[in-house]
Design a protein around this nucleic acid. Structure first.
Length: 115
DNA sequence: CTACTGACTGATC
DNA sequence: TGATCAGCCAGTA
């Protein structure tokens, strides 16, 4: 079952150091799914609270909070954003994170060479 | 098996 | 910067 992949995703997410963030595509690639960003998101969506997973450190490639912003509970605008700011991740005027500075770059994921 | 939807991504306008 | 289009995979109806 894909549940194993989920656990793998969570494991990767847990490896994200405080004050850093990672994109879905990045996580997906780390777990062995180069083009499964969506599924990576699925895994995060299925992340059980009891797992203590810093899911808020996982954002989209645009450096913005995803979640399709469709069902945020009244009152809590951007919980994810608050949590990230609390860890040192800053957002710009457009509400985006400076991936150039806060993107988590795992050793196993050489992300050099200008794209 | 086909169709639709979904925490996405990258390119283009 | 922001919106739109198409591509990708998986789960569910």
């Amino acid at each position: 079952m894909a549940a194993e992949l989920y656990e793998r995703v969570w494991a990767v997410v847990k490896r994200i150091p405080r004050g850093k963030v990672a994109t879905y595509g990045q996580i997906a690639a780390l777990v062995g799914m180069p083009r499964h960003a969506r599924q990576a998101g699925y895994a995060l969506a299925a992340t059980p609270e009891n797992r203590k997973i810093p899911w808020h450190r996982v954002i989209n490639a645009q450096g913005k909070i995803s979640l399709r912003l469709k069902r945020w509970e009244s009152g809590s605008d951007d919980l994810q954003r608050i949590l990230l700011e609390a860890e040192g991740v800053l957002f710009d005027s457009t509400g985006k994170v400076d991936l150039k500075r806060f993107r988590w770059q795992p050793e196993s994921a050489p992300e050099k060479s200008k794209r």
